[in-house]
Write a protein that binds this DNA or RNA. Structure first.
Length: 597
RNA sequence: GGGGAUGUAGCUCAGUUUUGGUUAGAGUGUCGGCCUGUCACGCCGAAGGUCGCGGGUUCAAGUCCCGUCAUUCCCGCCA
């Protein structure tokens, strides 16, 4: 017998009756009847009812202990009378009649109750340990642990090596803001925390390891979102040599299906590979975003041209000036009350900052149409639009959004999901995957050409594309994996050809010397013989959020930062003292007033 | 940097608009008492409030106005 326990609080049942046992755990609940006291004792594994009788002589001691105190009890396992069995507990057939109590740690007062599930997040973060004891949060972290175990095992089963890569490394000029770490040994110089192990995993391929993965911490100094933890997060990062895009997809599909099949609820529908592949361009048209939620059956389509042959000056001039009109088909939406349409219009203007509420056309029972825009089109034009949408029933509706393409995409995407949600069109308990492929290599903003994704991706046509195509027309062997409206992975087949790498950077405005300097490590190794290679990185937190249907990423992180990137437990970030600053050769300047106190 | 929502007892929330008006309520938790079979135990009693903060309007502000802070969601940002 262990010093503290012979069993856990989740394992004793009727078959253990009359055993003498020792249990340790936290006081979860107490029911004091004056003469007899019941305590629900909780540990990581479960809850067991322990009973104190007056004859034990420790009643007074027990009633003075605070909830969440840690105790060790010793006693006999008693089978309960039939009337006293609690069918809701695994250990509900028995209880422990205690004759010996040892207090490991007494709790004077609790800031809030572990049983209460309506505690605000600020307190949960401040008292995170208490929060991690609550049933929901405790199970969540065990769930995360199990998911990562499955992912690791799946990778190992495919004979993929697990390696670690440096955390103190160099800044990469592309991408998000870096976290910098001042060097003591090299005054004035800084390490950067990796935004991803990108360069190192490629170097592992050059080193001949063939297949690699790791559960990698990634650091990006960006503002948070509900699905984006500020500062740091984890990726299941992987890279493979001598592979094609399709072979990388197979590995990713195996990883996802194994993980989701094992950890989603009974009866869930999980896409089994091969996953759908959707070209970036197609995705932007049909779903108005590059991470579509495919549980939503609505597909947007373009109806720009019809307005050139109409009397509606607003849409006509938008299209004439290169803008677009897009249609969102909404099956049966005409059954909704007028107030629903009004509310949707207000939402669009207020939340999505659309200049006007989206127009709509509803099909009447007699085959005519109604809505503010109907009078501008001929009957056969409207009929053609509905035919294109495949809408044939009374009350079927089409919403219209017009404007320059870059302005309408975001509102379209949000409206597509909101309409489907309001109309209850989403598939339930379903996990829909897709690969978004054929991303453009470059994008133009304010006349400047920049990489639209990863500068290390291979242009689909190689050097030939780089030399002969308009940069905006060059596609990359770059792909994302999306699930239920989240981007859960990103990857590419890398550009392993040194001349075309320089050319690719040149198009984005980087001089040869800059590239040599910033990627010296990687370039040097590439000159030593680089295999064709490619890979992916899956966002672990997002995968867990999706499986648990959680909307906030902090729920799946043991010790998350708050929305302002502060740790309420440790106070991080904190000021450095003078001695530390001196040693690191750094000094403050230009601090805002509020930082000076 | 910008926009929306929220802020009342330790915690969850009602009261705030329509209509500014006596002592701001409930549940839960806490504390005290009672209770030998409960399992979210029960019963009796008590304590607990700068209505986020500051200013303004008014005879009178939790309620109206302005500002500000905090939390959160979104936009920007996220190769």
């Amino acid at each position: 017998m262990n010093l503290y326990r012979s069993h856990t609080c989740g394992e004793l049942t009727a078959k253990d009756a009359s055993k003498i046992v020792k249990l340790s755990g936290w006081i979860y609940r107490r029911r004091d009847h004056g003469g007899v006291i019941f305590i629900d004792l909780r540990d990581n594994y479960g809850v067991t009812q322990v009973v104190f009788h007056p004859e034990s002589g420790i009643i007074d001691q027990v009633s003075s202990l605070g909830l969440e105190s840690v105790i060790t009890v010793e006693g006999e396992v008693l089978k309960r009378d039939d009337a006293q069995i609690n069918p809701n507990m695994i250990t509900g057939e028995i209880e422990i009649s205690v004759n010996n109590l040892e207090v490991q740690s007494n709790v004077e007062s609790l800031p809030w109750s572990v049983i209460d599930d309506s505690i605000p997040e600020e307190l949960r973060l401040r008292d995170r340990v208490l929060d991690l004891r609550t049933e929901g949060q405790h199970e969540m972290m065990k769930f995360r642990s199990n998911v990562i175990r499955t992912m690791r095992n799946t990778m190992w089963d495919m004979d993929i090596n697990e390696f670690q890569t440096p955390l103190l490394t160099s800044s990469s000029p592309e991408g998000a803001r870096d976290f910098l770490v001042p060097s003591r040994i090299h005054p004035g110089k800084f390490y950067a925390l990796p935004q991803a192990p990108q360069q190192f995993k490629q170097m592992l391929m050059v080193a001949g390891f063939d297949k690699y993965f790791q559960v990698a911490p990634c650091f990006r100094d960006e503002d948070p979102r509900a699905d984006r933890h500020p500062g740091e997060f984890y990726q299941l990062d992987a890279e493979f040599s001598f592979v094609t895009q399709e072979e990388v997809f197979k590995i990713g599909e195996k990883l996802m299906t194994e993980t989701f099949n094992k950890h989603t609820p009974e009866g869930a529908i999980v896409d089994q590979g091969p996953f759908r592949q959707i070209a970036y361009k197609e995705s932007m048209l049909k779903y108005a975003c590059d991470k579509p939620d495919l549980r939503n059956p609505i597909e947007i389509f373009d109806i720009s041209k019809v307005w050139l042959d109409s009397e509606f000056a607003v849409f006509k001039s938008i299209v004439e000036q290169g803008g677009v009109v897009r249609a969102i088909p909404a099956k049966g939406a005409g059954e909704q009350p007028r107030s629903w349409f009004d509310k949707l219009g207000k939402f669009a203007q207020k939340q999505l900052r659309m200049p006007a509420a989206p127009g709509y056309i509803v099909k009447n029972e007699d085959g005519t149409f109604k809505g503010p825009l109907v009078k501008f089109l001929r009957q056969e034009q409207v009929e053609a639009i509905f035919a294109k949408a495949g809408l044939t029933e009374t009350n079927d509706t089409i919403f219209l959004v017009a404007g320059q393409e870059k302005h309408v995409l975001q509102p379209l995407s949000v409206l597509r999901n909101k309409i489907a949600e309001d109309l209850n069109l989403f598939e339930e308990n379903t996990f829909r995957f897709a690969w978004i492929v054929d991303f453009p290599m470059y994008e133009e903003e304010d006349g400047k050409i920049d990489f639209s994704h990863n500068p290390f991706s291979k242009p689909q046509g190689g050097m030939d594309d780089l030399l002969n195509k308009d940069p905006e027309d060059i596609l990359a062997q770059q792909y994302d994996c999306v699930c239920n409206g989240y981007e859960i992975a990103s990857g590419s087949i890398r550009n392993a050809d040194i001349p075309s790498m320089f050319k690719a950077f040149e198009i984005a405005g980087y001089k040869k010397e800059e590239v040599e300097e910033n990627f010296s490590g990687m370039l040097k190794t590439f000159r030593l013989g680089v295999p064709p290679h490619g890979g992916f990185a899956f966002g672990i937190e997002r995968i867990i959020m999706i499986m648990k249907n959680e909307s906030n990423i902090r729920r799946v992180i043991t010790f998350p930062l708050n929305g302002r990137a502060q740790c309420l437990l440790t106070g991080a970030p904190l000021k450095a003292n003078e001695a530390q600053m001196n040693e690191l050769h750094i000094r403050h300047f230009n601090l805002p007033e509020e930082a000076l106190d």
